[in-house]
Design a protein around this nucleic acid. Structure first.
Lengths: 173, 173
DNA sequence: GTAGGCCCTGTACGACCGTACAGGACGGCC
DNA sequence: GGCCGTCCTGTACGGTCGTACAGGGCCTAC
């Protein structure tokens, strides 16, 4: 039984790495399969359908997403601090949240993509307010983009360093 | 003859819009074709192969890319100013440069993807120096991400406003 | 009027994708 | 030994992608 769970976690690890490198739509089941030395049908056997891979990778941060949106913050600075902490903590799967999943326009209600899309929209609304002016819009997108790119491209750097530096950058914007 | 050039420019306009919305790999020739009321083979007739569409959209900023990399700047601030100006001016096709084209690992030498990849790498090297420390890396990626996201998501805002605001944000980081 | 070039369509091909399904290897349990 | 569930393979299907190619309107030039 250990072998079964082992291959399952090996598939998850390979998928996390490949999704971060090439994106969700950019990596096929065959890519993941060859990365762990299996067939693509074997991958499909454990994770069916493909969305389940993303869903399982995203499961650990689902709670954080909910609490981040549900919490009340004293000011925008507190929100920024929580946002940066969230982003850095889940940096290995952040690309799935910010770019890949939910990029399609066809979103079956109740799916993972739907939830992630509303999360992004809600997050932006929290950042810039309900009816933002032009400057606020630019700054909001700049903050999100800075966090996204910096975190995705520096996964080999120590987490605390990235967190501190990004908090500074986000505040500066 | 005007009709021929007209459909050609209409295809280009639709491609620019769709590429900005869904990305290069995310939009098919059929999507562009239906957007202009043609068949996908008609699109392929004018732009062959698909790369030519991206190449033609990117042609107007190729010169700016070269001059941006070739120019000498007094300090990093001058570089930032030129970078922000470049990014805002070509914001409708910036996603092609920063994300889509060159994302694949297979780059036939001399292709458009190859040139764009080296442009991105060179740009980052200019921003953070040849052997950057961890903090510089984080900041460099944060600047690029902020510019990219802000510009792509605010194409409906006046260009000068976005430029000024982003220059401020980039300097702050 | 008729030959030729330009635009465009229809059809078809091979490659790749995710998925479905039958069957085999392997181990635990009665 | 016989049985069964788990894990995995091989094969195949429908779909979409970019591309190739033959043919047909249509205008122009001779």
């Amino acid at each position: 039984m250990t072998t079964a769970d082992d291959t399952r976690s090996r598939i998850l690890a390979a998928a996390r790495r490949l999704f971060a490198e090439r994106g969700y739509a950019g990596t096929s089941l065959a890519d993941i399969a060859t990365a762990v030395g299996l067939t693509k049908t074997a991958v499909a056997y454990h994770f069916h359908p493909k969305d389940r891979l993303a869903a399982e990778l995203l499961a650990p941060c689902a709670d954080d997403m909910i609490t981040l949106l549900g919490a009340e913050f004293a000011d925008r600075d507190a929100l920024l601090e929580a946002l940066v902490a969230f982003v850095v903590r889940h940096r290995t799967v952040l690309r799935l949240i910010m770019e890949d999943v939910g990029g399609a326009d066809d979103a079956p209600p109740g799916s993972t993509g739907e939830a992630i899309r509303t999360f992004r929209d809600e997050l932006l609304a929290r950042l810039v307010g309900p009816e933002p002016d032009a400057v606020a819009q630019v700054r909001g997108w700049a903050v999100l983009g800075a966090l996204q790119w910096a975190v995705v491209h520096t996964t080999d750097l120590p987490e605390e360093l990235v967190r501190a530096e990004l908090l500074r950058a986000a505040r500066a914007i």
